[in-house]
């Protein structure tokens, strides 16, 4: 009952923000835009035939490739709209949940209740995740339905993107609440979380570059090891899309890309190798090591929260 009350309260608070509605509008608009696109034999149509584009991929609608549609839906639409824009908006929308809750005069009644501080913290944290779960469900369900009804491709595996996005968000949300517990400031929570997100991405990219491109760096064992270790420690934010692609049966991108020009071939092959390596990662390792980071950070934040004077 206490947890439920906390969840409902966090949800009510996030619903009170404009971003909540903005995110819903974006989801609906994306689904609407997808409805306007159709795939016909040998061409893609926009706005129900007002504009057409000839292509060699859709030679036969009945044989329309499921993996191609999955690639478009997951890599093209979900990753960009939900994985980047959506998660950024969610960080902004939820960053205030802890600072406003912890304000003097507001938190007093809550912490005086017969419930442990760490439980309060956890309840509030889960409340933030519930908000994202709601938004991700709306987005994925809408796009899932459009892909099924309009494009004739049902992608049951794509529904797993819902928990994956919540998971991705939770990697960043644990940073946001830790900052909030220390500084009690929404702005600090947003800024630092974005910076940390960029640095997570940076570490993962750096490790890929050292592994595949600047292989000469590997001779500096200590550099190589620390980059590797850093990658092991930080949440694998970039791998979420790869897992989503794998689970929804999307085809590797290079199958559909035009042949690269001669001078781009090296970059193209490098990208393909990195992509292949990422697709090959074991989700248990990726998710498990990321969750470890999250849990440790949360325990520290909880500990701090439990000892605070308000």
């Amino acid at each position: 009952m206490q947890y439920w009350a906390l969840l409902v309260d966090s949800f009510r608070e996030s619903r009170d923000r404009k971003i909540f509605w903005l995110m819903l509008v974006i989801s609906i608009m994306v689904a609407g835009a997808m409805l306007c696109v159709g795939f016909e034999p040998g061409k893609v149509t926009f706005l129900f035939g007002m504009w057409e584009h000839e292509t060699s991929y859709f030679t036969d609608v009945t044989g329309l490739k499921t993996d191609l549609i999955a690639g478009i839906v997951v890599d093209g639409i979900m990753d960009t709209v939900l994985g980047w824009i959506g998660v950024t908006l969610a960080i902004i929308a939820t960053a205030g949940l802890f600072p406003s809750w912890m304000e003097r005069g507001a938190i007093d009644v809550v912490v005086s209740k017969p419930i442990a501080r760490w439980e309060l913290f956890l309840g509030r944290y889960l409340g933030g995740l519930a908000f994202v779960l709601f938004q991700a469900t709306v987005f994925v369900l809408l796009t899932f339905l459009v892909a099924g009804v309009r494009w004739g491709t049902w992608l049951p595996g794509y529904l797993l993107a819902i928990p994956l996005v919540v998971l991705l968000f939770s990697y960043l949300y644990c940073v946001s609440v830790s900052v909030a517990v220390v500084f009690r400031s929404t702005v600090a929570a947003i800024l630092l979380t974005l910076v940390v997100w960029i640095s997570f991405t940076g570490v993962q990219t750096l490790d890929d570059l050292v592994t595949f491109k600047y292989t000469e760096w590997q001779e500096q064992r200590s550099v190589y090891r620390s980059v590797h270790l850093a990658r092991w420690i930080v949440p694998k934010t970039q791998d979420m899309t790869h897992i989503a692609k794998k689970w929804s049966g999307a085809a590797p991108v290079d199958e559909f890309l035009p042949e690269p020009a001669e001078e781009d071939r090296a970059n193209y092959e490098l990208a393909a190798r990195i992509e292949a390596a990422r697709m090959a990662l074991n989700p248990v390792y990726t998710i498990g090591s990321s969750l470890l980071f999250e849990v440790v950070l949360l325990i520290l934040a909880m500990w701090r929260f439990s000892r605070m004077d308000f």
Partner: peptide
Amino acid sequence: HCFPPYLTGFQLLDYYAALAK
């Protein structure tokens, strides 16, 4: 005190009492 502004009077009473089981 500064209570959550997004709640109604009834919701506020209900929420705090739920936390008190």
